[in-house]
Design a protein around this nucleic acid. Sequence first.
DNA 1: ATGGTTGAGCGTCAA
Length: 272
Amino acid sequence: MRRARRRLRVATWNINSLRLRAPLLHRLIDSLDPDVLCLQETKVPDPLFPADVPTALGFPFVAFRGMKGYNGVAILSRLPFEVQAGGPDWCSKGDCRHLEVRLLPPDTAPVELHDFYVPAGGDVPDRAENPKFGHKLDFLAEATEWFAARPRRRTILAGDLNVAPLEHDVWSHRQLLKVVSHTPVETTALTRWLATGFTDAVRRFVPETEKHFTWWSYRNQDWRRSDRGRRLDHVWVSHDLAPRLKRQITLKDARDWPQTSDHVPVCVEIEI
DNA sequence: ATGGTTGAGCGTCAA
C-alpha cells in the first residue's frame, strides 16, 4: 500500500528577539501558513522562553535552545516531532546555534529537520585579526564534516547561514567581495557544505541570474529604494526531496512590518 | 574612509 503524500511548508526567520517580535508571528503565519517554523536569534534564555506564544498560534510542538542576550534557536511545529539531542556542540562553545528534530507526520515517513544560526563573523574578514571570523570558518568546516559523515535522506536544513554564496545573492558582487558574508573563503565553505548532499531549494525557483535577498540592513534609510540586500537565509533539502519541491516564498513585505527584523521569512513547500 | 540602526540589558557588545 502506498503512503499518502502530504504538503509540508517549512519557514525560517531570523526574528532578532522572540519576545519583542512575537506579535509579528501572526502575520507570518497568515501569509505563509507554515507547518513548521524555524527561528534564529531568539535572544531568550530557556527559563524565560514564552511557552504560551507557540500554543496560542496553533503550534503545540516546540523546541528551543537559548541563552542570555545573543543567539538562540527555536522550532515551532503543527506536526509532532522528537528532538534529536546529542548533536555536536559546535566549536565547543555551547552557544545555541542548532536544533535537530525528527518530524513525525501522522500519514507519512519521518523527516529530519535542522535549524541553524551560523556565526555572523564580525567585521574584518581575516581570522588572524578577527577571532569571530575564524569561529565562523571553523563552524562551517565542522558542519560540513559532520554532514559529510551522515546519510542524507528526507532531510531539510533551514536557517540564517550568514553567507550569501552566489553572485546575485548580494546587491553588488564586486563591492562585497571583501565584506564578511560574501568573501570567497566563505562562499566556498558554504558551497562545500551544500555539496555534502543538499539542494538549494530557493534557487530551484529563482534563477541564479536574478537578484534575490532575504536581509536588508537597518542602517539604510530606505531599504527598498537602495535595495542593498543579501541572501543570508536559506532552506536546503536532500536530493531525494528536490523533485518534490513545489514553491518558495520569500516574504519581502515583512521588511515593512512595524518594528520588524532586518531579515525576512523564507518558506518552502514540499510534497513529502 | 566613515557612519548609518537595532536589541539585550545596563557595560558595551553583537549584528
